[in-house]
């Protein structure tokens, strides 16, 4: 074991197709669970799909394959996105998605690494993923392991102080086998991020902390792929991609709606949403 079973996808249209499927899985599982986080799962979908299917080495049949690239979903509430991707990648059958948030399910409300192989670390309490990503990246370097580490954070999540502790660490230890992403969808539970607790100017903050910062449209596959390439080629400092995204992306009546942060679609909404995604 150890080889990558699925070939990487570099074609933009193919990746967009996968992203579409992933969005459909997200909506399906959230509706079935009647619980979970819709907005933030949809906003980060394009970036996460690009990372998993165009960049990462992994083997769903051997989740602990030593040279696998690591993915950490620091914004753990977007768990449906991670599960949809893992199902699509072949970690488990699609039917398992029906068990999201059910008792004794491997698909816990927030990612749990002891319940589901392929989840690298449990997340859900915000602000912690980047520190773990740093630790993994340092461990890989000590072993001369060429694997890379990816970590997706929420924009609201960067209000946590630990994110900035970790930001210092990554620059201090020149952790260049790490690529972080801020899913900059502009909304958090209580309202617009800038209104709840301003985090701007995000680009300047990360740059001041010693990071290589790339701004992209987080729904533009070409821009995302270019940024991931640049991150991989940047040596001596960590890279963060600030992805401008729309919360609820792909479903017009969820887009930009703070109400859909932690609310699942109703059956009626689900049917409408599926049509939109098929037509979109």
């Amino acid at each position: 074991m150890g080889a990558v079973t699925k070939g990487k996808i570099t074609d933009i249209h193919e990746l967009q197709k996968v992203a579409k499927k992933v969005r459909l899985h997200i909506l399906h599982m959230l509706t079935k669970a009647n619980s979970g986080h819709t907005g933030g799962s949809l906003s980060a979908a394009d970036v996460a799909v690009a990372i998993y299917f165009s960049k990462m080495n992994f083997d769903p049949k051997d989740p602990f394959y030593k040279k696998r690239d690591r993915f950490i979903l620091s914004k753990g509430h977007a768990a449906p996105l991670l599960y949809a991707i893992m199902a699509e990648a072949g970690y488990f059958p699609l039917e398992v998605l029906d068990h999201l948030r059910k008792i004794e399910s491997p698909l816990q409300g927030h990612p749990c690494c002891t319940s589901l192989p392929g989840i690298e670390v449990s997340t859900g309490s915000l602000g912690q993923g980047l520190s773990v990503a740093n630790g993994m990246a340092l461990g890989l370097k000590l072993d001369n392991n060429p694997a890379r580490v990816y970590c997706i954070m929420g924009d609201g999540e960067t209000q946590e102080g630990q994110i900035w502790e970790a930001a210092m660490t990554a620059a201090h230890y020149k952790i260049d086998n790490l690529c972080a992403v801020v899913d900059n969808n502009g909304l958090q539970i209580d309202g617009p991020v800038q209104k709840v607790m301003g985090i701007a100017p995000l680009h300047d903050k990360w740059a001041a902390f010693g990071w290589h910062v790339i701004d992209v449209d987080g729904h533009n596959m070409e821009q995302i792929l270019n940024a991931l390439d640049k991150a991989e080629n940047t040596k001596g400092k960590p890279t963060v991609i600030i992805a401008k995204t729309t919360k609820g992306r792909g479903v017009s009546f969820f887009e930009g709606k703070v109400e859909y942060h932690g609310v699942a679609p109703s059956q009626e909404e689900y049917e409408k949403a599926v049509k939109e995604i098929h037509n979109g």
């Binding site: 690591r70 690298e120 670390v121 912690q128 993923g129 980047l130 520190s131 773990v132 990503a133 740093n134 630790g135 993994m136 990246a137 340092l138 461990g139 890989l140 000590l142 072993d143 392991n145 630990q162 970790a166 660490t169």
Partner: peptide, 10 residues
């Protein structure tokens, strides 16, 4: 968190 990450690489 960093310690946990290091542990996860063995």
């Amino acid at each position: 968190g960093t310690a946990a990450g290091l542990a996860l690489t063995g």
